[in-house]
Amino acid sequence: MKGFKEGFKTGIPIGLGYFAVAFSLGIAAARAGLTPFQGFLTSFLVNASAGENAAFIAIRESVPYLQMILITVVSNIRYVLMSFALSQKIRPKTAILHRLLLGFYLTDEYFALAVSQEPFCDPFYSYGAISFAAPCWAIGTAFGIIMGNALPFKIVSALSVALYGMFLAIIIPPAKKQKQIAVLIVLSFLSSYLLSTFTPLSESTVTIILTIAVSSLGALLWPVKGETYEE
C-alpha cells in the first residue's frame, strides 16, 4: 500500500496536465457531435490523446468503420513499442490481471513512471497514479464538451491549441539530439500542409498515408540500432 500512496502523489501533477489537455480534446469531440457522456466514455476506455483526437476527426468525417480501425491502429501504434518495453520491466511471475490493467492504462506518462523504477515496476505504484490521473482525463473530456459550447468563442479558440502544445512538447525535445527526427518533423509539416490543402483527402486519410510514408522513409534512411524506445 506504500507504493499506492507514493504513486498517488506522483499522479497529481500528471492529472492536472491531463485535465487541461482532455478539456481541449473535449472541444474537438464536441465538433464531432459527441455528447458529454460519449466523450467521458471514450476517454475512460481509451486514454490516448493523439489516438482520440484522430478518432474524433474520423467521427466528424463519418468515415467507414474499417477506416476507423485503421486510423486507430496508426495513431496508437507507438504503444506496441511501449508495451514491448514495459513487458521487460514486469516481474516475470506477475499475474495476468496486472498485465491487462497496466496495458489498459499504458500512456506516455504512466509508461515513464513504470520504467523509471528499478529493477521491476510495482503495479500498485502505477495504480496510485492512475487512480488520480485517469478520472481527470475522463472528466476533463466531458467538461470540454459541456463548456466548449458555453464558453466565449475566444476562450475556446485559445484552449483548442492545448492539445497541439502537448504534441509539440513531445516531439521537439528529441529532435534536438537527433537531427533525423527534426528532418522528419519538417517533412511531415510540409507534406501534411500540401496534402490537406491541394487534395480532397480527409484529415484522417492524410494522417494514415503520411505516417506510413514518412516513417518508412525515415526507417530506410536512418535505421535505428540498439534500444528502440527510451524514456
Binding site: N53, L81, L184, F189, T207, L210, T211, V214, A219, V224
Partner: peptide, 13 residues
Amino acid sequence: LYYVPYVTLSVMT
C-alpha cells in the same frame, strides 16, 4: 515503429 510517434504527431499538429 521508432519514427511513427514523431511523424503522426507532426502531421496532426
